[in-house]
Computed example of a mutant assay.
Amino acid sequence: MNIGSIRRLAPAGLLACAAAWTGAAHGQASDWPSRPVTIIVPSAAGGAADFSARVFAGYIAKVHPKATVVVDDRPGAGGVIGTMAAKEAKPDGYTFLLSTNSTHAANLSLYKDLRYDPVKDFVPVGRFGTFGSVLMVPKESPFRSVQDLIAQAKAQPGRMSFGYYSSSSQVPAEMLKAAAGVVYEGAAYKNVTQIITDLIGKQFDFAFLDALSAAPALQNDRLKPIGVTTPRRLPQLPDVPAIGEAIPGYEMQGWLGLTAPAGTPPAIVETVSALMGKAMADPEVRQSLEAKGMQAGFLPARDMGAFIAADIVRWRDWVRMANIPPN
């Protein structure tokens, strides 16, 4: 065969390879899940991310009765430990990360040497929705409003304290400090469960808890909400003012979604993204999440990249407003 013949055959050969690859990719998606699926949660059990992952895992099992879905909680370092585990996982469409505003936006501004790139190392799958944080104090606290808390902080500068476990709990507290011109100290925790325990025990004065994590403590009537970080009051807490009502312009919201390691087959990404959309349209799933404080707002994979890019900018600005130096 001469060189000209090889050249004429090359395009046809490439097309055949491409067709074979496309067929294989669609084949992978059509039989998904054919083995256990893992959702890595970069925070502790009992928090908003863990709850959302388990709700979605339950929906997958409902749609695919023979499927096995493992929720793997890997807390620590503001979500970095779990996120690194997902980054290093095989990109075969069977490992996903329950991603958050911390892992995919805020951490870029909170850490000097972040060991992963939320854009380059992951592909977006979808967003479940957004959530605000709730300013919580012990049930017996004298504070009945954010104005009460600010007044006390001004009267006793440096003597008050708060606990935090993620960007959604640290940043709003520091933003409030900067906006009100007060001084208080923060204590870092590994998980929200211990923060709730210590806040009930009056080990510190207040904490910002994401709305989903705050729900059980509110239902048990052991903590008292005095403000929310959303632009408007939450439907679940209509009597609790938005902090922006006292401090104009104050606002902060987080989100929960799924990403996958870079290189995950696009066909599987689309399959799982579509499944997320169906889950969020299911009344049972939607109600269970909204009852915990989430504002349901599904975004598919095709829109998630632009959302994350914009959120990186939002959190950069919020971290700067809060005067938090990177670790």
Rank of each mutant, 00 (worst) to 15 (best):
residue 1 M to L: 11
residue 3 I to D: 04
residue 4 G to Y: 15
residue 5 S to W: 14
residue 22 T to N: 09
residue 23 G to R: 03
residue 23 G to H: 14
residue 29 A to M: 10
residue 33 P to C: 01
residue 33 P to K: 07
residue 34 S to N: 10
residue 41 V to Y: 04
residue 41 V to K: 01
residue 42 P to S: 08
residue 42 P to K: 02
residue 48 A to Y: 06
residue 49 A to P: 02
residue 49 A to R: 02
residue 57 A to L: 07
residue 60 I to Q: 07
residue 63 V to I: 11
residue 67 A to D: 09
residue 68 T to Y: 01
residue 73 D to S: 13
residue 77 A to Y: 13
residue 79 G to R: 02
residue 82 G to K: 03
residue 83 T to I: 10
residue 91 P to T: 07
residue 93 G to W: 10
residue 103 T to W: 15
residue 103 T to C: 05
residue 106 A to G: 00
residue 108 L to T: 05
residue 110 L to W: 08
residue 113 D to Q: 14
residue 117 D to P: 07
residue 117 D to C: 14
residue 118 P to N: 05
residue 120 K to R: 14
residue 129 G to H: 12
residue 129 G to T: 02
residue 129 G to Q: 12
residue 129 G to L: 01
residue 131 F to Q: 03
residue 137 V to G: 00
residue 151 A to T: 08
residue 152 Q to C: 05
residue 152 Q to D: 11
residue 153 A to D: 03
residue 161 S to R: 12
residue 163 G to T: 06
residue 166 S to W: 09
residue 167 S to M: 02
residue 167 S to I: 00
residue 168 S to C: 07
residue 169 S to Y: 06
residue 175 M to G: 00
residue 177 K to Y: 04
residue 183 V to P: 01
residue 186 G to T: 06
residue 189 Y to F: 14
residue 189 Y to Q: 05
residue 189 Y to G: 03
residue 194 Q to I: 01
residue 194 Q to D: 07
residue 196 I to N: 04
residue 203 Q to E: 13
residue 205 D to A: 03
residue 208 F to L: 07
residue 208 F to P: 00
residue 211 A to P: 06
residue 213 S to A: 15
residue 215 A to R: 13
residue 219 Q to P: 00
residue 228 V to C: 06
residue 232 R to K: 14
residue 236 Q to W: 13
residue 237 L to R: 07
residue 237 L to I: 04
residue 240 V to E: 01
residue 242 A to W: 14
residue 243 I to E: 06
residue 247 I to S: 00
residue 249 G to H: 13
residue 256 L to M: 08
residue 257 G to E: 11
residue 259 T to L: 08
residue 260 A to Y: 11
residue 261 P to G: 01
residue 262 A to W: 11
residue 268 I to F: 09
residue 275 L to F: 04
residue 278 K to Q: 11
residue 279 A to Y: 09
residue 282 D to S: 00
residue 291 A to P: 06
residue 295 Q to T: 10
residue 300 P to K: 03
residue 301 A to R: 08
residue 301 A to E: 06
residue 303 D to E: 15
residue 304 M to C: 02
residue 304 M to F: 15
residue 311 D to Q: 12
residue 311 D to P: 07
residue 321 M to F: 12
residue 324 I to T: 09
